[in-house]
Simulated scan of single mutants.
Amino acid sequence: MIRGIRGATTVTENDANEIVANTKELVMEMAEVNKISPDEIATVLISATADINASFPAKALREINGWKYVPVMCMKEIEVPNSLPKCIRVMMTVNSHTRQEEVQHIYHNQAVQLRPDLSR
């Protein structure tokens, strides 16, 4: 069964170290709480708002031990008026037998306001 795990975070500045660190923290928690190993991940898609360009958020995954072969791609988030600034969104597509309603989606920092119904 293929499942999607959603996650999002924000940064306070357009800073390469903060972008990579916050993305890494988010992705690692997404995998940990959903008990996903790298070989179960089909793809990771990462979008960033236009105000984030100091680094590719996907660089974070290359720093995680065992994630060398996980396919990952970054893209620009669509610009919607009054949307959350400095936001990084992640969609992790995984092979899992977990039921859809049992998947734990992770939201950090200011991104918790995107889906308060799914935030822990």
Rank of each mutant, 00 (worst) to 15 (best):
A42W: 03
M75N: 10
V72H: 05
P81D: 13
N95C: 03
I64T: 06
E32Q: 13
N65Y: 14
E79G: 07
R3W: 07
N17H: 12
Q113W: 09
R62P: 01
E102H: 09
I46K: 02
Q110K: 15
N82C: 03
I78N: 06
N53I: 08
V112H: 03
T23D: 08
D117S: 15
S96D: 06
L45T: 07
D51S: 01
T93Y: 15
E18C: 06
E32L: 02
S83G: 08
N14H: 11
A8F: 06
A58M: 01
N17E: 14
E25M: 06
K35W: 03
K35A: 03
I2W: 00
F56E: 11
I41Q: 00
H105N: 13
Q110S: 14
E13R: 13
A111C: 06
D51H: 06
V103N: 10
V103Y: 09
T10V: 12
T12M: 14
R120C: 07
L45M: 08
I106Q: 08
V80T: 12
V103P: 13
R89P: 04
G4E: 15
K68G: 02
P71L: 01
T10D: 07
E18M: 14
N22S: 06
G4F: 15
I64M: 02
D15Q: 14
V44L: 00
P116G: 10
S37R: 10
C74Y: 04
I78D: 05
D15K: 09
S83M: 11
E32D: 05
M75H: 04
T43N: 00
E25Y: 04
N95Y: 13
G7L: 03
T93I: 15
E32W: 04
A111L: 12
T98F: 01
K86D: 04
I52S: 04
H97C: 10
K76T: 13
I41S: 05
E63F: 07
P116R: 08
T12Y: 13
K68C: 02
S47H: 03
P57Y: 03
E79M: 13
M28W: 02
N95S: 12
